[in-house]
Measured scan of single mutants.
Amino acid sequence: KKKPLTQEQLEDARRLKAIYEKKKNELGLSQESVADKMGMGQSGVGALFNGINALNAYNAALLAKILKVSVEEFSP
C-alpha cells in the first residue's frame, strides 16, 4: 500500500497542475503529449498532477523543462 502524500507534496501537485492549466494552450500541450515527453502513460501524468503519486526530483525537473518554468515555481 502506498503512503499518502504529505501536505507539502499535495501543495506541490496543486501548484504544478495550476501551472500546467495556465500554460498548456500557450505551449500546445495535452496530458498525452506531456506523458509522451516523459516516457510514461497519460494516467501517470494525471496521478502526478492530481496528487495521487508523489513527484520525484527527476519527474519534477522534466516537468519544469516541458512547462518552461523552474522547479521552485511549483515545489519551493
Results as ranks from 00 to 15, higher is better:
54 A>S: 09
8 E>H: 05
52 I>S: 12
43 S>P: 10
59 N>F: 06
57 A>P: 14
70 S>I: 00
67 L>W: 02
20 Y>S: 05
58 Y>I: 12
59 N>H: 12
31 Q>I: 15
55 L>K: 01
47 A>V: 01
42 Q>D: 05
23 K>L: 00
48 L>G: 03
40 M>E: 05
54 A>M: 07
22 K>F: 06
8 E>L: 05
49 F>K: 05
43 S>C: 10
62 L>G: 09
53 N>I: 14
19 I>Q: 04
50 N>I: 00
43 S>N: 12
73 E>V: 02
48 L>N: 07
12 D>K: 07
15 R>N: 05
47 A>Y: 08
10 L>S: 08
33 S>M: 14
70 S>Q: 14
54 A>D: 05
21 E>A: 08
69 V>W: 01
70 S>W: 00
58 Y>V: 14
43 S>F: 07
75 S>N: 06
12 D>E: 09
52 I>A: 11
55 L>W: 00
50 N>A: 09
35 A>K: 04
9 Q>N: 02
10 L>A: 10
21 E>D: 12
72 E>D: 14
10 L>K: 14
65 K>P: 06
70 S>R: 14
65 K>M: 01
71 V>W: 02
57 A>Q: 14
52 I>H: 13
67 L>R: 09
51 G>K: 01
46 G>R: 15
61 A>H: 13
56 N>H: 04
63 L>W: 01
65 K>C: 04
4 P>C: 14
53 N>M: 12
65 K>Q: 11
17 K>C: 08
65 K>E: 12
2 K>S: 12
51 G>C: 00
44 G>R: 12
13 A>K: 00
69 V>Q: 05
10 L>R: 13
6 T>D: 10
45 V>Q: 02
54 A>H: 06
59 N>R: 04
68 K>L: 04
2 K>E: 13
76 P>L: 00
36 D>T: 13
46 G>D: 15
35 A>C: 07
59 N>E: 11
58 Y>A: 14
32 E>K: 14
55 L>C: 01
24 K>E: 02
5 L>H: 04
28 G>K: 11
18 A>E: 12
25 N>R: 12
40 M>D: 06
63 L>H: 05
61 A>Q: 14
12 D>H: 02
28 G>P: 06
45 V>A: 04
67 L>I: 01
24 K>G: 02
54 A>G: 09
61 A>F: 07
20 Y>V: 06
8 E>K: 04
51 G>H: 00
51 G>E: 03
16 L>D: 05
21 E>N: 11
47 A>L: 10
5 L>M: 11
76 P>Q: 04
29 L>R: 02
72 E>K: 12
1 K>D: 15
65 K>L: 00
22 K>P: 00
72 E>L: 08
43 S>M: 10
29 L>E: 06
59 N>C: 08
35 A>Q: 03
71 V>H: 08
18 A>T: 10
2 K>G: 13
42 Q>A: 15
69 V>I: 06
61 A>R: 14
18 A>I: 09
32 E>S: 12
42 Q>C: 13
35 A>D: 03
53 N>W: 06
17 K>E: 01
8 E>V: 04
72 E>H: 14
9 Q>F: 00
3 K>E: 11
12 D>G: 06
25 N>L: 12
11 E>W: 00
67 L>H: 05
5 L>D: 05
1 K>Y: 12
24 K>T: 04
58 Y>W: 12
58 Y>K: 15
18 A>V: 08
52 I>Q: 14
75 S>Y: 04
50 N>T: 07
28 G>M: 09
74 F>W: 01
51 G>A: 01
14 R>H: 09
24 K>A: 09
5 L>Y: 05
46 G>C: 15
33 S>T: 14
57 A>R: 14
71 V>P: 08
23 K>I: 00
59 N>L: 07
44 G>Y: 14
50 N>Q: 09
22 K>T: 11
43 S>I: 11
32 E>T: 11
72 E>C: 12
20 Y>A: 02
44 G>I: 07
59 N>G: 04
61 A>T: 12
66 I>M: 09
27 L>M: 07
22 K>R: 14
36 D>C: 13
66 I>T: 08
20 Y>F: 13
37 K>P: 02
17 K>D: 02
16 L>Y: 03
4 P>R: 13
30 S>W: 00
19 I>A: 02
46 G>Q: 15
75 S>P: 07
16 L>K: 03
30 S>I: 01
57 A>E: 14
26 E>W: 07
11 E>R: 07
53 N>F: 05
29 L>A: 03
15 R>T: 01
1 K>C: 09
48 L>A: 02
66 I>K: 10
38 M>P: 02
66 I>V: 08
48 L>M: 07
36 D>P: 02
27 L>V: 06
29 L>P: 01
2 K>M: 14
35 A>W: 02
44 G>L: 11
55 L>G: 03
35 A>P: 03
29 L>C: 03
50 N>D: 12
68 K>C: 09
3 K>M: 14
49 F>M: 13
70 S>T: 09
66 I>D: 09
23 K>M: 04
6 T>E: 07
73 E>S: 09
5 L>P: 08
14 R>L: 07
75 S>V: 01
70 S>M: 01
13 A>M: 06
76 P>M: 05
66 I>Y: 03
62 L>T: 11
20 Y>E: 03
19 I>P: 02
32 E>W: 08
73 E>R: 04
31 Q>L: 15
71 V>K: 08
59 N>T: 15
11 E>S: 10
